[in-house]
Design a protein around this nucleic acid. Structure first.
Lengths: 220, 220, 220, 220
DNA sequence: AATGAATGAGAATTCATTCAT
DNA sequence: GATGAATGAATTCTCATTCAT
């Protein structure tokens, strides 16, 4: 079930289209990540992809299409890898842990792409921007469902599921966004474990909880 | 104590420099936010700032300088507002709550700027990028200290303080990053309260904790 | 007696060359007429001709060749149809009327091509331009001869035959050039009849002639 | 009363706009005439105009604007010079002769431009094309009026005035269109005199008229 | 003979930056 | 200090032409 990208190619052979686009997207991802969308020229992409500048336009109508293809690959990665990691897992809490774990790992693999999504989605035309957002929301909806299941089974408190979803998403994305900060301090495994632990088990001690309640009483 | 920006001006009168730069930065922030750095021309900025295109170059050496000034204003906002919100507050846990609350509120006020920082910091030359990062780290260090205090006082478990810091930072930034998603679902107050609650008190029920432990036993 | 076009083909089979070129020229005439020479791409021509883009280059060495073939067909049409219309007609004045009539009718049939000749002959390289002009002059020479015959027989005044030739030519071409203006006002038959009438019988009344002579007397 | 061209300039000083545009149009007219619209690059124009390539775009929005300006100058020439030549002339026939004479002379001066109008008007977008046509029709309407006056005064036969107008127009344009043919054979004065003479006095002799009538009798 | 993917030169246009006034 | 006209490098995109199959 291939994604409908809306990006048309002048070339007819579908296999060739796939192969060439992979070349183009691979090159573009690297360049966009290091120099940004506007800092990258079509010639740069062509050179790194090992093809002529003109050829790109047989597979894409304009530069923005390349960006769309790059970003779609990223969000497509999320949308596919996470459900796949849960196949066969039925325990709700385990599903949640696995989902977040998988999310963090996809992000780790597509680190450049994830950051790029934050930086460059706005460089897309609004309709295309929506396309990306929509696919991201699909992924979120999946996680939301996993959370809801946990709530229903009485494993999670009756929290705002949207917000909790988002907290997990931010944890995953965060690994890419602030990689420069964490890379030297923490392994991915530790990052995942500790981040999840905080959100699930909280971070207050018994004394802290006590104090927290007192403060809340004052505030209200 | 004005920040050393490294951006030089040809104009002598320091007051004028401040005034003009404010005009320029205000205009640029709006434009960069809506159209992005590359989508904004120096003429656009000049027009919105109500001055001539040439004049900008009396107060700034190049376009990138404008971006630097804009981003500095944002991180400067963080670095100043958060400590200010804690003045006179001594209780460690209260300080933590206030700090996160303040952070979220600065972000809310500078929403456009915060998003811009995510999108456009890479458009700066590396040394300038470092400048921004450094200031952001200052803010983080402040929060880290607040957290450490809570840990020392036995109010928080002995978590990885860096990671917890970062979790709070992401909560704050998250409000700006995914504003389009939350705005319609949640008030800022709710967002702050519930987000903090999850990280402090956790989200598992007693049954959930039990199950979590079992899963952990299996995993290890 | 085929015209020597100077356009060479890589294909040996002469029949095939003729057939393919007809396809190409037909497509090109339509496209050049509606979009102009530069507004038409080789791919456009190939598509409309129902062949592949590369194949055109088996029958033509460059794009300009196609234009030459198109324009040659037009002037060739003049050069052949007009004499044919006079076959068997011996009366000099009748020959003249028939010639002009035939010219107008060929133009009417090749309207697009005629206009194209005006617009695009300059897009040819000078030697090719000469080729077209030469063929046009052949047609003109034919008409000139018809006129000269009328003069010799005392049917026409001793006018400048070149200029009169040209006046008839312009009448014919005019039908194509300003078709947009006349089409709604006049039938081709009326156009031919009235235009010829003016040049042959003049348009002045007796009073007008008188006045014309007086003005001439003053002028000289 | 300046013509509304619809071409906007970024430069504010109107005098400068006029001066620069004159430079641009002069250069463009020469280049478009010799190499055609598509054979001329903006850099060519800039170089010949003695300005930088970018500067053109301060006075014009796109290349087509330059063509429009060039063509407008031509038709504007017609629309102004012809009426001017008739100022103070009241005799209807004299007005007609003067009008045609003036038309031929403007064309002679703008020969390149006139030919260009035939070649390149289609390179304009439809609305702009209409603009040019409209102005041309104004000129024609003027001549039509002069002819109608002659008819009313009984100086010209009751011919189709539109068609006669057009015949005169073609005579004028013809001087530019087929200049390459006539230049060596005829002076402009002879061309004008003889062309008008044919249309006014006709070219048949008495014998010719007789024969013409006989042929007409047969035809009908 | 025919296809259509691939090449690469070239052109219009934009815009940061400079400079004369 | 301020203006805005002028510069020119750089970029995207097109398309005639070639070439492997």
């Amino acid at each position: 079930m291939d994604t409908e990208t809306g990006v048309t190619s002048l070339v007819e052979d579908p296999e060739l289209v796939v192969r060439r686009r992979r070349q183009i997207v691979t090159a573009a991802t690297e360049l966009f990540s290091s120099r940004g969308f506007y800092g990258t020229t079509m010639k740069d992409i062509a050179r790194l992809a090992g093809i002529s500048a003109g050829l790109i336009y047989q597979y894409v109508r304009e530069k923005e299409d390349v960006l769309l293809l790059v970003l779609l690959e990223v969000v497509e990665g999320y949308a596919q890898q996470i459900p796949r990691a849960l196949e066969g897992v039925t325990d709700p809490l385990e599903r949640l842990l696995k989902a977040v774990d998988a999310y963090c790992r996809v992000v780790d693999r597509h680190r450049a792409g994830t950051v790029l999504a934050y930086r460059s989605t706005k460089s897309l035309s609004p309709p295309r921007r929506e396309l990306i957002k929509a696919r991201e929301l699909e992924t979120n909806a999946f996680i939301t469902a996993v959370i809801a299941e946990c709530v229903e089974r009485g494993l999670l408190r009756r929290v705002n599921v949207d917000l909790l979803t988002y907290q997990f998403v931010l944890i995953a994305h965060g690994w890419a966004l602030k990689g420069w900060y964490f890379k030297s301090r923490l392994s991915l495994n530790e990052y995942i474990r500790d981040s999840i632990d905080a959100v699930l088990n909280g971070t207050l001690t018994a004394a802290g909880e006590q104090r927290h309640r007192e403060l809340g009483a004052v505030a209200s």
